[in-house]
């Protein structure tokens, strides 16, 4: 049995410990917000938080999450009103939307460590997640908006 705290709930898993977290979420829990894009840690569509740090769920085995805490897009906020989620809507970030869970989780981890990130910090952090729709400049604006309390609801 592998015990993982997922979005605040403690779950027990009787699964092959090598199963990538991505597929535990998607297939076994039906939490399909975390996406499969490459399965090799290259695209970032699958990024979730493992003890508050962004990891590629596609190459993180379940065993690595044992006794730790995992947060997915479904658990990013209790009410869908994380400052980033609000800013994402205001800046019209999502296009096809496929990469956006990975983008949001990466941005959320960035803001957790750097509440007022510089352009360079944003660029470095966000270059881990590919957006084939090219929403990058909107993502940057949305992060700046979310990290600036005065601009948040503007």
């Amino acid at each position: 049995m592998i015990s993982v705290t997922l979005n605040g709930e403690t779950l027990e898993f009787d699964l092959d410990p090598d199963t990538p977290l991505l597929w535990v979420l998607r297939d076994h829990l039906g939490l399909t917000g975390t996406k499969y894009g490459c399965g090799e840690g290259e695209c970032g569509a699958c990024i979730v938080h493992l003890d508050d740090k962004p990891v590629n769920a596609c190459i993180t085995p379940l065993s690595e999450a044992s006794g730790r805490s995992v947060k997915t897009i479904e658990g990013l906020s209790p009410d869908g009103r994380h400052p980033l989620q609000l800013a994402w809507i205001i800046e019209e970030v999502p296009q096809c939307g496929y990469c956006q869970s990975g983008q949001l989780m990466t941005a959320a981890a960035l803001l957790a460590t750097h509440p007022r990130p510089t352009d360079a910090q944003i660029e470095t952090a966000m270059s881990e997640v590919i957006c084939r729709c090219g929403s990058y400049n909107r993502i940057r604006r949305a992060i700046l908006r979310a990290s600036n309390p005065e601009a948040q609801n503007g």
Binding site: M1, L6, N7, E9, T10, L11, E12, F13, D14, L15, D27, H28, L29, G30, L31, E74, S77, P78, D79, G80, R81
Partner: peptide
């Protein structure tokens, strides 16, 4: 969005209850 979040949490709880792994 509230309803969705509630739903997803409910889905999660159901798995937690049925836990023991395997295919849900």
């Amino acid at each position: 969005s509230d309803a969705q979040l509630r739903l997803s949490r409910r889905a999660l709880l159901r798995v937690a209850a049925a836990s023991g792994g395997g295919l849900a």
